[in-house]
């Protein structure tokens, strides 16, 4: 019920209609994707009854297995590296006196949010190509480094928010009680920061798991991740197997984002 006084956007003409259209266009395609992942037939458009055969088929598909493992390995390392870097960056941008160029530093850390992904992808392709020629190394390292880099701002923002919300007098009280700067961090800052760190790491993990553009450009032959494998499949023949994999990915992402939401709300 609308409140008796004050402005309520819901009373504007057309608000409900516009909101409904937005939600439908956001979620209808996803819902259709999920529904057809359970299709008994091999079409993604004609419903032929309920079945889990495409999940079974994806599960048994060796290429899917390999791509999944690869995706998880890259996402794990990318989350670990980017979160570590993000903690340091967050400390360096919150536990300092304001200085000239602070905004520039902030913008630099968040560069991946501003530079178009395709530009980064092309740049990395050329850059890594040079290194590959020089060193001959063609392992997963390139993907891990690339993913770590673009995950940093996603890990950085929740950690920085947490640090900014913390009571600085606690750190002062600790140093007043003879704790060295490192002890203050270890004993006081870190125990209160971990929900932010966990939230940042989960966000970074999901972002890495989901990436197509940079991965597609940077990967060497036979280094398909789950998203690039799916893209490759779609070019040939479309079966509900892709829907099944997507649905699982969706499930993982949604779970992590919900967990992120709750973790970042932990008070202590």
């Amino acid at each position: 019920m609308a409140r008796a006084t004050g402005f309520d956007i819901r009373r504007q003409y057309g608000f409900t209609t516009i909101a409904a259209i937005c939600f439908i266009s956001l979620y209808l395609p996803v819902i259709l994707l999920v529904v057809y992942s359970f299709n008994a037939g091999s079409s993604v458009a004609i419903w032929e009854g309920f079945s889990l055969r495409w999940y079974a088929s994806a599960w048994a598909n060796e290429q899917v297995q390999e791509a999944t493992v690869r995706s998880l390995i890259i996402a794990f390392w990318a989350a670990l590296i980017s979160t570590s870097a993000a903690v340091l960056a967050a400390l360096a941008t919150t536990r300092v006196r304001p200085y000239r160029g602070y905004s520039a530093v902030f913008a630099t850390i968040n560069q991946p949010l501003m530079v178009p992904e395709i530009v980064t992808a092309v740049a990395l392709l050329i850059f890594f190509a040079g290194i590959k020629v020089q060193t001959g190394y063609t392992g997963l390292g390139y993907l891990v480094i690339a993913h770590s880099a673009f995950c940093i701002p996603f890990a950085y923002l929740p950690i920085r928010a947490r640090l900014q919300g913390m009571d600085l007098t606690l750190e002062q009280a600790a140093s007043d009680l003879y704790a060295s700067p490192f002890q203050v961090f270890r004993r006081i800052t870190l125990p209160q920061l971990w929900p932010g760190i966990l939230a940042g790491a989960m966000l970074a993990f999901v972002i890495s798991l989901d990436d197509v553009v940079i991965t597609e450009f940077v990967k060497s032959a036979g280094q398909d991740t789950l998203p690039t494998y799916m893209l490759g499949q779609l070019r040939r023949v479309v079966t509900p197997e892709v829907n099944a994999i997507s649905t699982v990915l969706l499930g993982i992402s949604v779970t992590m984002v919900i967990a992120f939401f709750f973790v970042s709300r932990i008070r202590k």
Partner: peptide
């Protein structure tokens, strides 16, 4: 001396007890 080397201790207005 930095704060952690001074032989003084403070009772803060907000108490600043460590919540964890």
């Amino acid at each position: 001396s930095p704060p952690h080397h001074r032989p003084v201790n403070t009772v803060f207005q907000s108490y600043a007890l460590f919540p964890h």
